[in-house]
């Protein structure tokens, strides 16, 4: 395959041929699957953390897209519509599975800072850059923390900060307002900062 041919199939800018998809054309679906399944898989896998289940979700996503394509209203990008299907399936699967060990809403709220008359109640101790750098499992610590976020916060961190979709796209995928995306992303980052805090603070010299 030539480079141009490849970029025609896999390039990010290509809008799928809707008429061909509407007609159920196999080649058009093959192009769609080739172009979108890798990105969609990454999102679904980050939500679920299970390769086999993620692969099932991808298959089901494209099947549903095939079955429901006549309901696509062209108000958003086609890929946004497609991803919304996949994300919904992934979230449904996560809720059904007993693997979910996320924080309760009240525990999540406790990770937000408290203020008195607009000022921090507790002082904020600095993080130790050396300790962060030396902690080779820092990404492990972070991803365990992300997994503990309530599901709707976790999804937004994955879509906005990791996969770097725009606020508007994420709002459409999740059918919430852009404001809600911004607020939840911020609250999620704040909660993550708090969960990382004990791992990264300067350690007190143990007093003998």
């Amino acid at each position: 395959m030539t480079e141009t041919a490849r970029s025609k199939i896999e390039g990010p800018s290509l809008e799928p041929d809707l008429d061909a998809l509407l007609a159920g054309d196999e080649k058009a679906f093959e192009r769609l699957v080739t172009q979108e399944s890798p990105r969609l898989f990454r999102i679904v896998f980050r939500i679920l953390g299970d390769e086999e289940e993620s692969q099932n979700i991808i298959q089901e996503t494209f099947l549903q897209a095939f079955q429901r394509i006549k309901t696509f209203r062209r108000e958003s990008k086609f890929t946004t519509w497609l991803y919304a299907i996949g994300i919904n399936l992934a979230r449904g699967s996560l809720r059904k599975s007993k693997r979910m060990t996320s924080l309760s809403d009240s525990d999540f709220d406790r990770l937000q800072p408290s203020f008195s008359k607009g000022m921090f109640v507790e002082t904020v101790a600095s993080w130790d850059p050396l300790r962060i750098a030396e902690q080779t499992n820092r990404h492990e610590i972070l991803h365990r923390a992300i997994d503990r976020l309530p599901e709707d916060y976790k999804t937004i961190v994955i879509l906005r900060d990791i996969e770097e979709h725009s606020t508007e796209e994420v709002a459409k995928m999740l059918e919430i307002s852009g404001g809600a995306v911004r607020v939840r992303l911020h609250r999620a980052r704040v909660a993550l900062r708090e969960m990382l805090n004990p791992h990264f603070q300067y350690q007190r010299q143990s007093a003998e």
């Binding site: 921090f120 904020v124 101790a125 600095s126 993080w127 990404h139 704040v190």
Partner: peptide, 23 residues
């Protein structure tokens, strides 16, 4: 003295999230 370090940590958190792990 609070918001200064808080902001640094907020930014570090974002950096760590973005470094992420490959799928």
């Amino acid at each position: 003295k609070c918001c200064g370090p808080y902001f640094d940590q907020y930014r570090t958190t974002i950096d760590l999230i973005k470094e992420g792990r490959e799928v």
